[in-house]
Write a protein that binds this DNA or RNA. Sequence first.
DNA 1: ATTGTGACCTCTC
DNA 2: CGAGAGGCCACAA
Length: 108
Amino acid sequence: MDQSFYDMVFDLVRLIPKGRVTSYGAIARSIGAGGSARMVGYAMNHAHLAHPAIPAHRVVNSTGLLTGKFHFATPDLMQELLEQEGVLVKDDKVQNFKQHFWDPMDEL
DNA sequence: ATTGTGACCTCTC
DNA sequence: CGAGAGGCCACAA
């Protein structure tokens, strides 16, 4: 695959169904990054530059905490988007995270 | 080529 | 249960 790490991450994130969330580590392992979950977040750093728009708000850490909410246009935007899709967010944390969790391997 | 940094994860105390 | 440290890979300067 000539696709770079970014493209793989972006592609996978774009495949995340609405109302579902996933963790950086899950994505990293799905693409074969192993324990390089940090790279996933790094890619998300350029997510706002990628096209089409990437639902980065559906990507949270293992604890379901909205770590990168500050990287969005507005910190509240991430929570708003999640709630908009039916994901309840409280204290910057995804409620029923396990329930809303979407395993990339499930699609692959 | 080397150094530094990063929207993290996991283990151990 | 809470805090700390290490590790991991990729990209930018």
